[in-house]
């Protein structure tokens, strides 16, 4: 994870088209400017960044299932719960499942665990739109970087 660059996903572990589920892994960095303010002397990953991590996992799920034809933009976060603190060096497992594929939108359920213990979970909604010009290639490059290979999408 590079928190200050919003690169929240390190590696896609699996993308199951049948169950419409993705699993990814991420390691919280030992140091980040984010920890200077959150909180002084007691570094914790902010809940908004855990939410972003669940959103990115969900986004790559939608991108993969749709073959990178459209871009999912986060439009809603429901039922978010943050159950445990997350500090530097924590290894996170993020899963997301497609709950509903609507016309022009998608809904996922996502959760983060560490060593099998629940960290947080939420229901996320995305607006599905055509890629802004030039963005699809950049998103494919990002996806490739985290192991969401071309043959998977």
């Amino acid at each position: 994870m590079r928190l200050e660059y919003f690169e929240m996903i390190d590696q896609v572990t699996s993308l199951d088209r049948e169950t419409k589920r993705i699993e990814v892994s991420s390691v919280v960095p030992q140091e980040s400017p984010v920890f200077e303010g959150h909180f002084p002397g007691h570094p914790l990953v902010p809940g908004v960044l855990l939410t972003e991590t669940m959103a990115q996992a969900s986004g790559y799920l939608v991108l993969g299932l749709m073959g990178f034809t459209h871009m999912p933009f986060l439009m809603g976060v429901d039922k978010a719960r943050f159950r445990t603190f997350v500090g530097p060096g924590t290894v996170l497992t993020v899963t997301a499942s497609l709950e509903h594929e609507g016309s022009g939108y998608a809904v996922t359920k996502a959760r983060i665990t560490a060593e099998g213990k629940p960290i947080c979970d939420a229901e996320l909604r995305f607006r599905i739109m055509p890629f802004p010009e030039g963005m699809d290639g950049l998103m494919r490059a990002q996806a490739k970087r985290i192991g969401l290979l071309e043959e998977n999408v």
């Binding site: 439009m75 809603g76 509903h100 594929e101 609507g102 016309s103 022009g104 939108y105 809904v107 909604r125 607006r127």
Partner: peptide, 25 residues
């Protein structure tokens, strides 16, 4: 339009359908 997507999701779930919003729009 954003609120209508929330409504569409609730309608989709309640009736087990998929409102063709993109087509309508």
């Amino acid at each position: 339009s954003l609120a209508f997507l929330d409504i569409a999701f609730a309608i989709d779930k309640a009736f087990g359908i998929k409102l063709p919003l993109e087509q309508w729009t």
